[in-house]
Design a protein around this nucleic acid. Structure first.
Length: 874
RNA sequence: AGGCCCGUAGCUCAGUUGGUUAGAGCGCUACGUUGACAUCGUAGAGGUCAGCGGUUCGAGUCCGCUCGGGCCUACCA
């Protein structure tokens, strides 16, 4: 076997073999009786390459699905990608710009051709990246949110919701992005704190020389004012209600009205009303039946209706111009510094323009209530559960979802208009024509919000709207969704709503929400900061298994993941450890073979101990995975393999395998335990374990073509052996004590040490004497003697055994004395604390008996230690 | 404005229903390399668990307040 551990030498090879073998192709219910297990990939955007967040989620998903597959489930991990409307369209538009052309120049059809080219390229990148991580996806079922099947699902959902009156078209204030030239949803708006001004502007009152003063942060919108309102209870302005103000610069007559919405304390207590450019004003206008005026256009420039002086100006230029004019006319009463929040487009970063517009809206209140209910009844579990409150808050406050986008890349809205503007919402144009009685129809220009199709992902990928689709019947509802918390509302909530609406069932039973992968300084990774790490570069440097192990081991619930290259190097070293442990076992096991069945009967203590620890680890790992505690499962695997199998079992096997102190079945047990350990590790480190597994002698007799299909180890209760674990724990403690003494005194390796087991015939001391060969080998003791040691030997009580170490060396130096004094001090402090508790009747009376008993035993041990240390110092 | 999360060793973080001796990895120190592994081994140093108060026989863990950091939600012009 090669001495060098080199992941590159086998990772790609196994990826290829897995892809060709079809091992990961799931079956339908008609093809297998095995219970199903399904994870749907959160489809990555075809905007670019995968980032660390994808690597994290993919590692976790693959861990889950490989584990379940090994447990005998019909396991499906369904891969796919998302067309990601705005995001992807922007990428291609940027490309066109560089080529000196534009989407408008190309026209819809040719532009979409370019989009599909882009999609093909980036989609194949993503697939390569997933494969490079060792993902056991079922590529025969891969989907894309814009493919034909998904399009049918989208149209079906839209038509049904429309028939149910839940999707409607209408005029309302939406968040408009003048840069992207489309409406965006509330979720795509980011509130940012901005230092602005509050301008106080005087409006003359008709038929009087009096003026009223309104306060606004957006003076340019005054050109579209159609009223002024005050709170009905505001004494200061009661006399004005019913009168008319004259809009400066424009001359429009504005009714002065009373409306509860106004907070008398804010500003001047008078609000100018601009129905078409402010959501609150729009509502006020509806209450009072006020008209509106569009003064800002979709391009963010002032319209003709803003007046000749301002038309064509950018909205921010217009603000300056309006303020200047007001000042010149003596109508600017005051300017106050004012910090307020302004909505910004999450993607473009520019301030969003609240704007009246005709859009499609989806009323999601009913669905939201059901999604909320599903969490209450625990049909849907959020992990960690701290997200439940956030879920509750968002879903109970939900408002209509603006689902139309003025883009070209996306699902075209299935609505057609005849020449008189009648609208027909149908599955296809043919049906619309029948309904309309004409073929002179025009399809709605808009496309749907990306998240509308993503929201249908659990249904559409499994074959819906065909209710009898085999995959839908086999895998819906799916089992676990693993995704980052930042798309809880964008995506998770919408999938829950859609699935409950169309299937009356939750789309998945459990949602595992991961944190964000951050850089070494804890900053969020972003392209603008330039701190993005490409997972493939890490795979190149550390190997896919180390990347996977690191990410899984760091996935603590509710916590972000600080990316630390040293940590990854540590897990690469773990791979090296596994490699070399296997190399040792294979090269030293002689004629031994991996056993398919193994019973602890007739085995000696070190072997029984190994099997017991292995069984215990298998139990814990399964439990941790069941609980989605990937970090703890990985921790268990790491500590078992390195800290027990390598540090102890291999060392214990050495004297047996070398013939020094033969144990006939040591090699067989070591190989067999190693084989089970590789299986335990396989879901996290698939390449390494597959590579090594095939090299174990006798593994072919187990009858699995791949470790990926081998049975995941169960807890194996018949292997558990508490007595041997206790015996071995004592042995280990004694060995550690002797090793510590040697290093702390700085004794050379050759120094002769004889261990005397003094004082009696306890189980532990008998065991120690029986295993004398192991003590000699592991603690480098020359001899283990039953009975009292000589005068001047180092005496200590360890694990209940009285020891005397006869060390051929000069007596204690000052340094060692200091250390012992410190040790004695610590022991005495703890003794006093234990004594204090034990003499306190409150403690002995109220604490559980086993706690009190434990304290007693502890105190006894401490007294003995203190006596022996004092003896050394004397 | 409301809500959530976090503060534990030099660094990054574990610590399930309160139980006595608070753990891990990395880093650090000392020693060790003719055979599994220097991507290693053995041992060691390092913590008033942010602070204050409370409940309790017993608090890193439960409760309250304070300080510090992060995040989410929100139409005060």
């Amino acid at each position: 076997m090669e001495k060098r551990f080199d992941p590159k030498s086998y990772e790609a090879r196994w990826q290829k073999r897995w892809a060709e073998s079809g091992l990961f192709t799931a079956k339908t219910r008609d093809e297998t009786d095995a219970p199903s297990f399904c994870i749907l990939i959160p489809p990555p955007n075809v905007t670019g390459r995968l980032h660390m967040g994808h690597a994290l989620q993919s590692s976790l998903q693959d861990l889950m699905v490989r584990w379940k597959r090994m447990q005998g489930y019909n396991a499906l991990w369904l891969p796919g990608t998302d067309h990601a409307g705005i995001a992807t369209q922007l990428m291609v538009e940027r490309q066109l710009e560089a080529e000196g052309t534009s989407r408008l120049e190309l026209g819809r059809e040719r532009f979409l051709e370019r989009m599909w080219q882009w999609k093909e390229q980036y989609h194949s990148n993503i697939r390569r990246q997933l494969e490079a991580l060792g993902s056991s996806c079922d590529w025969t079922r891969e989907r894309f949110t814009l493919d034909e099947g998904l399009n049918l699902a989208v149209r079906t959902a839209f038509v049904r919701l429309h028939r149910e009156g839940l999707i409607t078209r209408g005029e309302a204030i939406v968040n408009w992005s003048p840069v992207l030239q489309t409406a965006i949803s509330d979720l795509e708006v980011e509130a940012r704190e901005v230092r602005g001004q509050l301008w106080h502007i005087a409006y003359p009152i008709e038929g009087s020389d009096q003026r009223l003063v309104v306060a606004t942060t957006r003076p340019e919108t005054m050109l579209g004012d159609t009223a002024v309102v005050a709170n009905p209870d505001d004494e200061r302005y009661r006399h004005l209600i019913g009168k008319t103000a004259i809009l400066p610069l424009v001359g429009r007559r504005l009714p002065i009205l009373a409306d509860e919405h106004v907070e008398p304390e804010f500003g001047t207590g008078l609000v100018k009303v601009t129905p078409f450019h402010d959501p609150n004003d729009f509502e006020i206008a509806q209450r009072h039946d006020l008209p509106g005026v569009r003064v800002i256009g979709f391009d963010g420039r002032m319209t003709e209706q803003a007046g000749a002086d301002f038309a064509g100006l950018d909205r921010f230029e217009a603000r300056r111009a309006v303020v200047e004019r007001l000042e010149a006319e003596g109508l600017l009463v005051a300017v106050r510094e004012h910090v307020h929040t302004v909505g910004h487009s999450q993607r473009g970063g520019e301030p969003v323009e609240p704007m009246i517009s005709t859009q499609w809206f989806c009323d999601v209140r009913g669905m939201a209530a059901r999604a909320l209910e599903a969490v209450h009844t625990e049909d849907l579990r959020l992990v960690p559960s701290t997200w439940e409150k956030t879920w509750e808050h968002w879903l109970s406050e939900i408002r209509p979802w603006c689902i139309s986008r003025q883009l070209w890349w996306g699902h075209r809205i299935p609505a057609w208009y005849d020449e008189s503007g009648n609208c027909f919402v149908t599955l296809d144009e043919e049906e619309a024509q029948k309904l309309a009685g004409t073929d002179r129809l025009r399809q709605d220009e808009d496309v749907l919000d990306t998240w509308f199709s993503s929201g249908l992902w659990p249904l559409s990928t499994l074959g819906w709207p065909d209710e009898d689709a085999p995959d839908l019947r086999t895998f819906f509802p799916t089992d676990v969704l693993i995704t980052a918390f930042d798309i809880l509302f964008f995506w998770v909530a919408r999938m829950a709503m859609m699935s409950l609406h169309f299937q009356d069932r939750v789309p998945f039973r459990t949602v595992h929400l991961t944190g964000l992968v951050r850089d070494a300084e804890g900053a969020k990774m972003s392209k603008t900061k330039g701190n993005v790490i490409d997972p493939l570069e890490l795979v190149e440097e550390y190997g896919a298994d180390a990347v996977r192990f690191t990410l899984c081991a760091l996935d603590a619930p509710g916590r972000d993941i600080p990316f630390d290259p040293q940590r990854m190097a540590g897990y690469r070293a773990f791979g090296n450890k596994i490699w070399n442990a296997t190399r040792f076992a294979v090269s030293r096991a002689g004629e031994a073979r991996v056993a398919s069945e193994l019973s602890p009967d007739g085995l000696e203590a070190p072997e029984r101990w190994l099997l017991s620890r292995l069984a215990r680890t298998a139990g814990t790992v399964n439990e941790k995975l069941e609980a989605l505690r990937f970090d703890e499962a990985c921790g268990q695997l790491y500590h078992f393999f390195w800290g027990e199998l390598c540090d102890w079992s291999i060392e214990l096997a050495k004297p047996a395998l070398s013939g020094e102190a033969p144990r006939p079945r040591a090699g067989e047990v070591l190989l067999s335990a190693l084989e089970r350990s590789l299986r335990l590790l396989h879901p996290v480190m698939p390449h390494l374990t597959e590579e090594l597994w095939h090299r174990l002698p006798g593994v072919e007799a187990l009858g699995w073509e791949s470790i990926a299909l081998a049975r995941y180890p169960e807890p194996m209760p018949e292997w558990l052996d508490e007595r041997v674990e206790a015996d071995m724990a004592a042995l280990q403690e004694v060995i550690s004590r002797i090793r510590a003494e040697r290093t702390e005194r700085g004794l050379p390796t050759q120094t002769r040490i004889v261990l005397h087991v003094e004082g009696g015939d306890t189980r532990a001391s008998r065991f120690l004497l029986e295993q004398a060969a192991l003590v000699c080998s592991l603690a480098r003791v020359d001899e283990v003697v039953d009975g009292a040691g000589p005068e001047g030997a180092l005496r200590d009580r360890v694990a209940g055994v009285d020891l005397a170490l006869d060390i051929e060396a000069p007596s204690l130096g000052a340094e060692e004395r200091g250390r012992l004094e410190k040790e004695l001090e610590k022991v005495e402090i703890e003794m006093r604390s234990a004594e204090g508790r034990l003499t306190n009747p409150q403690f002995t009376g109220k604490a559980p008996p086993q706690v009190v008993e434990g304290t007693r035993r502890r105190l006894e041990e401490l007294r003995e230690r203190s006596r022996r240390i004092a003896e050394q110092l004397a």
